[in-house]
Design a protein around this nucleic acid. Structure first.
Length: 874
RNA sequence: GGACCCGUAGCUCAGUUGGUUAGAGCGCUUCCUUGACAUGGAAGAGGUCACAAGUUCGAGUCUUGUCGGGUCCACCA
């Protein structure tokens, strides 16, 4: 056996096992017909990503489940990989280009893609390597990328299929446009943030009498250049005679009609709305209703275009100021009011998005949403916590069509070709050579690529090789559980469910676990820009991956508030496991070390501490199993922490230390340790794996061992009760020692009185009691001794007396006991009162009543004992 | 404007269908370098469970309201 140092050297150990697990394909999942698959889905991180605490939490949760299931005998599959993250990745490379003072248009599509692939090759594995350091037990042999050849085939297949079903269409609509990224965005990709803006009141003169005007209010004056009408509510009495009149649009002097539309609410602003169909979704709809023309006044980069007259070429926000100033000079500006409203921002670069009229591809969502709603309503897919299903449902019920075309180059090219001769639109799985209609070879592929999420939504099956390789897909699909943060319920979770049902005929997973956000101690989101982020890699270096994992989970409630010192708990626990194991291994002499040796040990002959710890182990296993089945991770960890540290180390090991030279004691202790190491492995994999090697039970690594089974036969409530009494007595005696400042190495005498039964029990434990409480002279007696200068106390049915003549202050001792007596009395009274309440007796369940009765008995017994002890003190 | 979450010890949080004298970790106080571990051990102090009303034999737990903090969604320009 190799040396075990007093400190757990996590750095070397973690590195060693990371490499071992990967090199030996320990986590590779096969289509083993003897086993049941348990596969999980986790958001594939962006290929541009670097590991942050959110990833650490997400991956740890998932790893705990997957290791639990793997040890539980399932063929557990965790598919790792990265997402090409279209806009984000292209932005990274475009920034590099910008340093060379070039734009993507300078170098062209091919060259940009070359650079992107080069970037991916060089940096794309960064986050994957970081995930390995966490101990994530992914099937690394299956690592996928959303732009892998076969994955791209799946994307294309899906596009064509949806097109053929009429669920994908092209159309001219108002979409969210990011002028910086210069691409369309989906509704979800526009993040609305509350923004303190202004409401500008502008006069639009009447054509028939230019001295008269109508005042409109707008937050975006620059778009007025594209106005093609002004609308009022048809029932608004103020404007009845103006409907149908013509206004002169200031600045550009265009004639525009006053129309009536129910959309306009009379209460807001002046009750008159400028209508700009090319720059506002509502106005666009109104434009359609009233056959209004659309005037686009902006370039794609956010500068005003030729329709903006003298403002052409200026940026939209500069144009806003200039126009306001100009209107002011014209005396056409009535007033400016402060106005706070939500403004959309690009989720990748945070530029204010522009509602923009353009031709894009869309997915018709209603038909896909209906079955996705159903599976959550009928419980086929469950959210944990359940409340997230409401968020999901609300979104699906109000879903709008999904804009999937992006005017960038990094991504899956839209498989659509336009015949340059006859205008035919060709949508095909294979690149076409000729137009099927006119046979022309002059075909031009659509310039755009697909939204990244249009590939992400296929992750649960495209990663298994669908639609080509269906053996893996059949075996592992549907997966069981998805782990993610709430932010991507719409982007990803909902869409995966839709795609799964549509293409696989079954949901992609059954459990959706939504975990909290990792925040700093002040409750702020961790972000690089705030400078409050704690780098998980730094924590791994300083405290170890085990510590990082354990600490994150034990602190996880809803959201997780974390500061650096929080990671000490995990580090300390790992060290504790290490040292407890060291103690056991230093003493164990026998060489045959069968797995799960507990089964072969005759516990009936074992002593109380052994029966107790084995019993506690069983309930701990049960608690962990139940907690994990319900995704209550911190509860599972608490149970483990409590058992291993609070019971096994603090009590059991302390008690058996002197007996560790006995083989029977060694065997039980070893067996309990062995089971504990298995039990703790999913949570704290590295230290347990390392200890496993030292245990010498198996050549195979712990990650592939069987999960411990709770054995009900080993549960022993009698032993637990007895042990509790022993521990309480020990604590009370130690308390007495501390109370009277007795040095730790100074021995005391002690007399204990109680029933013969209890005293018999204590007799079997007397050496241990002496050891734990540093007693030299221990006597048991049925009679209360006369002990006038003793510290004394009552523990359950026992009374104890510690003679301390010359040390003890009897008056102080008496007053302490009287205080205790009063406390008991007060308690006793409330319970007696409860028991004399007829309503309580009539309505409370019998077991509750019985419990209360037993309580009173116990309390009375204790009070009597105290009374005896007190009177004994004189 | 809708929806949701949170308010329990100095701090961060547990507390599963209402039923012991409300728990843990950190921090704090006192003591302990006894060969597994000072990243440790022993003992202890600390809470009218935000507030108010209600339901109930019984409320930290359920209902309603108030106050405070947070999140998501939303095309009133």
């Amino acid at each position: 056996m190799a040396e075990m140092s007093t400190r757990f050297n996590f750095t070397d150990v973690e590195e060693k096992w990371c490499r071992f697990w990967e090199d030996n394909h320990i986590f590779h999942a096969r289509t083993d017909p003897e086993k049941t698959a348990y596969s999980v889905v986790i958001p594939p991180p962006n290929v541009t990503g670097i590991l942050h605490m959110g990833h650490a939490l997400n991956n740890t949760l998932q790893d705990i489940i997957i290791r639990h299931k793997r040890m539980g005998g399932h063929e557990a599959c965790w598919m790792p990989g990265t997402d090409h993250a279209g806009i984000a990745t292209q932005n990274v490379v475009e920034k590099q280009l910008a340093k060379e003072k070039k734009t993507r248009h300078d170098i062209g599509r091919e060259a940009l893609l070359e650079r992107l692939w080069a970037w991916k090759k060089q940096y794309g594995d960064t986050i994957i390597n970081q995930l390995k350091k966490l101990g994530s037990s992914c099937d690394w042999d299956r690592t996928r990328f959303t732009m892998d050849e076969d994955y791209s085939q799946a994307v294309r297949h899906v596009f064509v299929s949806l097109y053929e079903k009429g669920l994908i269409y092209q159309g001219q609509y108002i979409i969210n446009w990011c002028p910086r990224c210069q691409t369309a965005l989906s509704d979800e990709e526009a993040e609305h943030q509350e923004h303190q803006g202004a409401l500008y009141y502008i006069h639009y003169p009447l054509k028939k009498d230019r001295s008269k005007y109508l005042t409109v209010a707008t937050t975006r004056p620059e778009t007025m250049l594209g106005d093609t009408a002004v609308a009022v509510n048809p029932k608004d009495p103020r404007y009845q005679d103006l409907i149908g009149e013509t206004l002169i649009l200031p600045i550009v002097d265009r004639e525009i009609p006053i129309i009536a539309d129910d959309f306009v609410s009379p209460e807001f602003g002046t009750g008159a709305v400028k209508v700009t169909p090319a720059h506002d979704p509502n106005d666009f709809a109104m434009g359609q209703r009233h056959n209004l023309p659309s005037v686009n006044v902006m370039h794609p980069d956010g500068r005003m275009n030729e329709n903006a007259g003298e403002f052409a070429g200026t940026d939209r926000f500069e144009a806003r100021e200039a126009i306001v100033e100009f209107l002011n000079e014209l005396k056409a500006l009535e007033k400016i009011e402060k106005h706070s409203h939500a403004v959309g921002h690009c989720y990748r670069c945070h530029t204010v998005v522009e509602p923009y009229l353009s031709k894009q591809w869309f997915v018709k969502m209603k038909p896909l949403a209906a079955p996705a709603l159903k599976v959550v309503q009928d419980g086929t897919v469950r959210f944990y916590p359940e409340r997230w299903s409401k968020v999901y449902t609300a979104w699906l019920e109000n879903i709008r069509d999904w804009c999937i075309s992006r005017q960038i180059w990094w991504g899956h090219r839209i498989p659509v070709w336009y015949c340059q001769e006859c205008g035919e639109v060709i949508v095909a799985l294979e690149d076409p050579f000729r137009c099927p209609k006119c046979s022309s070879t002059l075909l031009k592929q659509d310039e755009d690529v697909l939204d990244t999420w249009f590939s992400s939504w296929l992750w649960p099956f495209a990663t298994f090789g669908w639609p080509q390789n269906n053996e893996d897909t059949r075996y592992f699909y549907p997966t069981q559980s998805l782990f993610t943060a709430s932010e991507i319920i719409f982007f990803w979770v909902a869409r995966m469910i839709m795609a799964g049902i549509e293409f696989m005929g079954d949901v992609p997973f059954h459990n959706v676990l939504i975990h909290g956000t990792v925040r700093d101690a002040q409750g702020r989101k961790m972000s690089k820009s705030l400078g409050n982020a704690i780098d998980p890699l730094e924590i791994i270096q300083e405290y170890g991956a085990d510590a990082l994992r354990f600490s994150l989970i034990i602190n996880s409630g809803q959201d997780i508030y974390i500061s650096k010192d929080k990671f000490e708990i995990g580090r300390n626990f790992a060290n504790k496991i290490w040292n407890a194991s060291r103690l056991v291994l230093m003493n164990v002499r026998f060489t045959d070390r069968p797995a799960s040796a507990l089964e072969n040990i005759n516990l009936a002959n074992a002593d109380l501490p052994a029966q107790w710890i084995v019993s506690r182990l069983q309930s701990t296993i049960e608690t962990v199993d139940t907690a994990l089945d319900q995704f209550r991770f911190s509860e599972a960890e608490n149970a483990i922490y409590d058992f291993f540290w609070g019971a096994f180390c603090d009590w059991y090991l302390e008690l058996v230390k002197p007996d560790l030279s006995r083989e029977d004691v060694q065997r039980i202790t070893f067996a309990v340790l062995e089971q504990s190491i298995r039990l703790m492995h999913p949570f704290i994999p590295f230290v347990t794996e390392e200890i496993w090697q030292h245990l010498g039970v198996s050549q195979e690594c712990l990650s592939r061992q069987a999960w411990p089974k709770a054995n009900k036969q080993f549960k022993n409530s009698v032993a637990e009760t007895r042990m509790r009494l022993f521990m309480e007595l020990t604590t009370a005696l130690r308390n007495t020692r501390a109370q009277w400042n007795i040095r730790p190495n100074q021995k005391i005498s002690c007399v204990i009185t109680g029933s013969q039964n209890d005293l018999d029990l204590l007799t079997t434990m007397q050496d241990k009691l002496k050891l734990m409480a540093q007693i030299e002279d221990l006597n048991f007696s049925a009679e209360t001794p006369s002990a006038k200068d003793s510290a004394s106390g009552v523990v359950g049915p026992l009374k104890f007396f510690v003679p301390l003549s010359g040390i003890i202050d009897i008056d102080q001792e008496k007053s302490r006991m009287r205080k205790e007596q009063d406390e008991l009395d007060r308690l006793c009274q409330t319970i007696t009162k409860r028991l004399s309440n007829e309503q309580f007796l009539a309505k409370a369940p019998q077991d509750v009543v019985d419990k209360e009765k037993a309580k009173v008995e116990q309390l009375t017994e204790k009070m009597n004992a105290l009374k005896t002890v007190l009177s004994n003190l004189g």
